[in-house]
Design a binder for these strands. Structure first.
Length: 377
DNA sequence: TCTGGGGTCCTTCCGCCA
DNA sequence: TCTGTGGCGGAAGGACCC
């Protein structure tokens, strides 16, 4: 009897906002959004209570990074501009992002998972895949529930995460990463969903194609034009038709994904490919009129990239820049050097050579500096 | 009131070279 | 020498994700 493959996807619930609520418990149950600049730090008042900023009157170019569930009920969500969110939910509390804390809780929850199941693929600060196939008990039936064993293992993981962080998470368990990613969303927040291939027609096919990890705004719109809105509609389409419309690689992937087929292994190691720093200005800057300020920011970004590289022990052979113009059009330029570099002066110099290759007549809203082709020092 | 910041991966094009 | 082919690294853009 060969073991049945069980892959879990674990997603922390409203992660950044939930970490903030641990620190400010008086905000529990309220509409809170995370995002924007440093100037919205809560202020401790004379009577010992804290005074929080609200969205009302927000000005700037920030976006929502995370919103609590009560805030989402007011029609705001991550990615939304804070100005727009302020119009919809002026009374919502606004807190600045604190990546330091989120990283600390990220390490905590991943360690808690690893105590139960050590084969983990990192997917960023708030989500992971976990291979449960070989965890003791995962292949057991409980009564007439063939998935009872793996359900218990997943529940133990959830308990461990809550015990060590005080935070809730949602978990999907299925035979592969693609389906588990979908399943973890089915009972959010604080849910556990176990699915087998037999559940595909009832639980997966009714979902919008956009829910599939790998179908973004562009592909979603193109599918819509073909009359394909749900995963089930996609699954029913002729493979040849998808190949004709989307090319060999992507067409094939669409067909397999809709049918729940995904053989990708967990990637448990991984070296960074690039490191970058970028910033959106408070107002659009002009290459000539705002030259001094642009130069200062440019040098600062190069210095930050150098600091990041050195702290993590890498050097980059390809140095690149990214510019975004006032009309949101984005261009990049890069330059591969004879040798990898990690010092601020060399990065700044190479980035400067890249900048000379761009027409700078339009005003800029963003500037970025990147190091790629990394080698370990 | 336009749309953050940090990434990965893929495609296409181009020059160079065998 | 001409023409074709194919690999490869580098550059640029774009789609997508957290």
């Amino acid at each position: 009897m060969t073991a049945r493959r069980w892959i879990a996807h674990l997603d922390m619930d409203a992660f950044y906002a939930s970490v903030e609520l641990l620190r400010y418990p008086e905000l529990a149950g309220q509409a809170v959004v995370i995002g924007g600049g440093r100037r919205h730090q809560p202020v401790l008042q004379a009577d010992g209570t804290r005074r929080f900023s609200t969205l009302a009157g927000y000005t700037g170019r920030g976006v929502i990074t995370t919103a609590t569930y009560p805030a989402r009920d007011l029609g705001v969500h991550s990615g939304m501009g804070l100005m727009k969110a302020a119009a919809r939910a002026p009374q919502a509390i606004l807190l600045p992002v604190d990546f330091e804390s989120y990283r600390r809780y990220s390490r905590l929850f991943k360690a808690a998972v690893a105590e139960v199941a050590p084969v983990i693929e990192d997917r960023g600060i708030d989500e992971i895949y976990i291979d449960l196939t070989d965890i003791p008990g995962a292949q057991d039936s409980v009564g007439h529930d063939a998935a009872g064993g793996v359900r218990a293992v997943a529940q133990e993981i959830r308990n461990n995460v809550r015990r060590s962080t005080g935070l809730s998470c949602s978990v999907g368990v299925t035979p592969n990463k693609l389906l588990s990613k979908l399943a973890s969303e089915l009972d959010k927040p604080d849910g556990l969903t176990v699915l087998t291939m037999a559940d595909l027609p009832t639980r997966i096919w009714p979902l919008a194609v956009r829910k599939l990890n790998g179908i973004g705004p562009k592909a979603g719109a193109r599918l819509g034009q073909l009359g394909i809105d749900t995963i089930g509609q996609l699954a029913r389409r002729d493979r040849a038709e998808l190949l004709a419309h989307f090319g060999r690689a992507y067409g094939r992937w669409l067909h397999e994904a809709a049918n729940g087929i995904d053989d990708r292994p967990l990637v448990t190691h991984g070296e960074p490919v690039s490191m970058s720093r970028e910033t959106t200005f408070d107002r659009d800057l002009h290459a000539v009129r705002d030259r001094a300020e642009l130069t200062r920011i440019f040098t600062e970004l190069a210095t930050q990239v150098a600091t990041d590289l050195q702290r993590k022990g890498y050097a980059g052979r390809t140095i690149g820049i990214k510019l975004r113009f006032e009309d949101f059009k984005t261009v990049t330029r890069d330059l591969t050097l004879p040798q990898a570099v990690a010092d601020a002066a060399a990065i700044r110099h190479a980035a400067g050579l890249c900048l000379k290759r761009v027409d700078l007549t339009r005003r800029l809203r963003l500037l970025g500096v990147r190091a790629g082709s990394l080698i370990r020092l």
